[in-house]
Design a binder for these strands. Structure first.
Length: 613
RNA sequence: GGUCUCGUAGCUCAGCUGGAUAGAGCAGCUGACUUCUAAUCAGCAGGCCGCAGGUUCGAAUCCUGCCGGGAUCACCA
């Protein structure tokens, strides 16, 4: 039974003559009644006032009267200002609980539609850091969320496996590693390769400093500096030009990139070897974070794509060629600028590749809905990309969505690799698990947990704290990541919610009989019980809204509120020692449904539930 | 400078498709374990919802302007 629809039907009949054929169900605002008033649900009648031309108070009274007469589940009502508070019969709540018992999952019905979710998409020259962690958690949970809301989902990423950055790592390894490998140094592959990237930058910096003192450096300074510009400022600004024009290391790296493009066997061999080290490392981190992918795209395979689309655009006169041969599109009619889509030398830019990759994905999967989980610094790029797809009249153009999320700051400010404030993903994961372990060891636990199981619990709890801490924040917002707070396990945290689940499991372990006592005769449900049921009733709609908004934080928030109510319920009401068999049966059944919902919600945000803690 | 975005308690965040006296958590203070796991519960204190206008029965929520933070405006990705 859907109470909203019941009330809507009732109103439609009551105001048959005034409503001019409009379905009043759509005008209903029904919400749980605030604690300070009597009632279970509150109907706001203001939206109906204008159409029906009756004063709010009178209207509320009229509707209340009618609902009480027509709907057996309405026990009573009261009117305060324009608010109609309805109290429902116990029967209604008990029926709701039975409905929950019958359904085996909170997943929404299948939508028979496929969606592709892209996330992570790292460069292969450095290990993953906190920024990637937000991306990965957000992408993976959005994928789960869409799945729960009825889509079939394909997880993907595009791995930036080529370019000058990886060449720097390769070159440094070639020159300075002396054949060392992740195995020989016992280092995780991505960190191993990242170290050589850092080493390259270090050697390059040294080289640059030496050069600045030499004749060539001095004359470059004199020739190019702005008026009154100090040497330090100038050379900071000049770094890229130095790399491109003067630097021996720079030219070696560029040469390597050229060789890579010419498919030089030796370079390609080294490239594959080092990238594979990185992938092995990434895979470990993904596994810990609970992320997996159905299909991978590599930039090395897509970076030449998009040229066909450029031709297509030129033919349609959407794109135009400038005198130097570069190709552009004018997006000023949709509030953007002119955008380059092909360089004058005929090579691709980022945009070219992305146009090609979308097309390829559509060809491969036939998906018209594709989500890009990419930080908000690329808002402009995706606006442009989507606008271009639209102009090219692609059938998937309207299904493209940029899941744009805010940067992660530290309490001290932005993460900066130069200042060494970047938080490494693997370190972070290890820390939260350690913290969970140390918390666990300080607790007085009344039950037996063997050491192996305890380790597994620590992992779930630690990661639960971390994931929840990141995912509870609205994706769009920039967030502050305080490492200290991220391992908190009290209050609005992952472990708090896990704990609610664990309490229920503990009860279920003690309730061995498992006999389904009929709770029909249970009467006078208390407020917490109704509150819990009312929240459970809202869950499907929350899943729907969260999926619609691509916002897993709504799921986190739901789980927290439900857990909070359950903790209060647990504290205030006896379950196993309930006053009657019916009460016990009802509460056990209710507890079971709460656990089911908590687990379902946490499954969406990628957090595992421990059975004990 | 143009465009986009954010601004809610000391701190971190909810609430934003307009609805009753703006909610949590942390930090601070007070209380509750012989009890189904205290990673819990109850209470106190803490707010010109950035500022100023507008829209209306009603604005933290919508619109405009301003102030402040951030992002972006590459033949980089």
């Amino acid at each position: 039974m859907n109470i909203q629809i019941e009330i809507g039907n009732c109103l439609n009949a009551l105001y048959e003559n005034q409503r001019a054929g409009e379905d009043l169900t759509n005008k209903l605002v029904l919400s749980p009644t605030r604690k300070e008033f009597d009632g279970d649900f509150t109907l706001v009648v203001f939206p109906l006032v204008k159409m029906l031309k009756i004063s709010p108070a009178q209207l509320a009274e009229e509707i209340g009267q009618c609902l009480k007469e027509e709907l057996t589940i309405v026990k009573n009502y009261n009117v305060i200002k324009g608010f109609l508070n309805l109290s429902l019969e116990d029967k209604f709540w008990k029926e709701q609980l039975i409905l929950f018992n019958k359904q085996d999952s909170f997943d929404l019905a299948s939508k028979n539609e496929q969606v592709l979710v892209e996330f992570s998409s790292p460069n292969t020259n450095k290990p993953l850091h906190l920024g990637h962690v937000r991306n990965i958690l957000l992408g993976a949970s959005t994928s789960n969320l869409l799945k729960a809301s009825g889509y079939s989902v394909i997880n993907t990423q595009i791995i930036n496996d080529r370019g000058i950055a990886i060449c720097k790592s390769m070159l440094a390894w070639q020159k300075y590693a002396g054949g060392a490998t992740p195995e020989s140094t016992n280092k995780k592959g991505d960190h191993f390769v990242g170290d050589y990237y850092v080493l390259f930058e270090k050697k390059f910096k040294e080289e640059y400093l030496d050069w600045q003192k030499g004749d060539e450096g001095l004359s470059a300074f004199k020739a190019n500096r702005n008026e009154d510009e100090e040497a330090i400022i100038f050379f900071k600004r000049f770094k890229n030009q130095y790399f491109n024009i003067y630097s021996p290391l720079g030219s070696e790296a560029k040469e390597m990139l050229l060789k890579w493009e010419e498919e030089d066997q030796e370079v390609r061999g080294l490239w594959e070897k080092m990238n594979n080290w990185v992938y092995a490392g990434f895979e470990e981190t993904y596994k810990k974070l609970g992320a997996s992918f159905d299909i991978l795209y590599y930039e090395s395979q897509t970076y030449l794509l998009g040229k066909d689309a450029i031709d297509e655009g030129l033919k349609k006169n959407l794109f135009y060629k400038k005198n130097d041969g570069s190709v552009w599109i004018d997006l000023s009619d949709v509030g953007l600028d002119e955008k380059l889509v092909l360089r004058s030398d005929g090579t691709s830019v980022y945009m070219t590749q992305d146009i090609g990759t979308v097309e390829k994905r559509f060809e491969n999967h036939g998906t018209k809905k594709m989500i890009y989980t990419v930080a908000n610094e690329q808002d402009y790029h995706f606006k442009a990309l989507f606008a271009i797809c639209k102009k090219l009249n692609k059938e998937y153009a309207d299904g493209l969505f940029h899941l744009s999320y805010g940067m992660v700051d530290l309490p001290s400010g932005k993460m900066k690799s130069r200042e060494g404030t970047v938080v490494d993903a693997d370190d972070l994961i290890e820390e939260v698990i350690c913290e969970a372990a140390s918390n666990a060891s300080e607790r007085e636990v009344t039950i037996e947990i063997d050491p192996e199981e305890q380790k597994e619990i620590n992992r779930k709890v630690g990661l639960g704290a971390l994931k929840y801490f990141i995912l509870k924040v609205n994706p769009k917002k920039r967030m502050v990541f305080d490492p200290k707070e991220s391992v908190d396990m009290q209050g609005d945290t992952g472990p708090y919610i896990q704990n609610a689940y664990v309490r229920i499991q503990s009860i279920m372990r003690k309730e061995k009989e498992n006999t389904q006592v009929n709770f029909d005769s249970y009467q006078d449900l208390n407020e917490v019980e109704k509150d819990l049921l009312s929240q459970l009733m809202e869950y499907p709609q929350i899943i729907d809204e969260a999926a619609e908004a691509y916002d897993p934080s709504k799921i986190a928030s739901f789980a927290y509120q439900l857990a909070r109510s359950y903790h209060r319920f647990y504290h205030d009401v006896s379950i196993l020692r309930a006053e009657s068999p019916e009460a016990k049966s009802f509460r056990l059944s209710l507890s079971r449904e709460v656990a089911k919902a908590l687990k379902h919600a946490f499954n969406i945000i990628g957090i595992e539930m421990p059975e004990k803690m």
